[in-house]
């Protein structure tokens, strides 16, 4: 929770929307929130070796995307990872 959120409570309508989006990801993909959380943490660990990322702002979800072959819609793992800065010396 960020500093601002602490003082300004989120509207319950927004809370409902965000919770729904999360629960539907796992409903649609048949993939539990715990597994998604583990994937998220693993991604953070791997990328953090090479660059400084905003782990609070990291967003991963399973979405639908058009298949590049001809199978119509297929699930895709989408990750949005905000970079705060690059480590000058990698692999310390």
């Amino acid at each position: 929770m960020s500093f601002v959120d602490f003082f300004r409570r989120k509207n319950s309508g927004d809370v409902a929307r965000d919770r729904l989006k999360l629960v539907l990801v796992s409903d649609r993909a048949n993939c539990s929130p715990e597994i998604m959380e583990k994937i998220k943490n693993d991604i953070i660990n791997v990328i953090s070796k090479y660059m400084e990322i905003d782990s609070e702002g990291l967003d991963i979800q399973i979405t639908q995307t058009e298949s590049e072959t001809d199978n119509g819609k297929v699930p895709a793992l989408y990750a949005n990872i905000p970079i705060k800065g690059m480590h000058l010396t990698s692999g310390k």
Partner: peptide, 17 residues
């Protein structure tokens, strides 16, 4: 009235989801 004060999802939210 609830949508206006942020305590109900908007129609846009529902359609997007």
């Amino acid at each position: 009235d609830m949508v206006k004060r942020g305590d109900m999802m908007t129609v846009e939210d529902v359609c997007e989801i």
